[in-house]
Amino acid sequence: MNLTDSLNNHYPASVLDRLDPRLRLLAALLLITVIILLQSRPALATVLGGAIVMAVAARPPLTVTLTRIIPLNVMLALFFPFIALAHVQGLQFGVSAKGLHLFIDIVLRANALLITALALVGSLDIPVLGHALVHLRVPRRLAHLLLFTIRYLEVMHREFMALSRAARVRNFHPGANRHTYRTLAAMVGQLLLRSLDRAERILKAMKCRGYNGQFHLLRHFSFRACDAVFALCFVPGCVLLIVFDRML
């Protein structure tokens, strides 16, 4: 997976962009909680359908969708034999009904959770996500750490790529041997040193500009009529799901 591509993954404009990012985060949090609490299969299937509808509205790029959904389901498939296979006798194994039901519920729930995140959170540009978190009163330092990390993630990745190219120029071929481990350790160590040197320079530059622990956010969000309409549909929808689930 290419880090640069992932960081710059822009979803095309969609109806969901009209919503306040803060509302989208809160809606994601609510829906994730609801999905975790659902117990019946019809409710799980309904919520998966709802998540898919929202994901279609958010228009995630096909590559993003596939690179999320395929690995999750491959992982779950690896999990299948451990929970659904039952020992019959000798080398014979059969699929147990209970295990199979449990597995189907896990697949529905996992996909519903992933697609919800993809639709409501994944479509937010990550810096916007950081700003929305600050406005939602997430601890200030945590949000600042997140924003700084996003800013310098690619810088650090480039540093590492440079180190790895330098190693290849000297004919470094990774293999399972002591030399490889020592080389990789030196590369990671060097990366840590460079990150610290860079941090010192950043702090000095920030102090020169009068840094006193404040990080002024210029982006503000507004809660508008369409947000109210969305909230008025979304919250009762979640409540109905829970009621539907408990009635079954």
Partner: peptide, 13 residues
């Protein structure tokens, strides 16, 4: 904060 964030980025990489 810059130091912690840079180390976070380095550990992530």
């Amino acid at each position: 904060i810059p130091r912690t964030a840079m180390l976070t980025a380095a550990f992530f990489v």
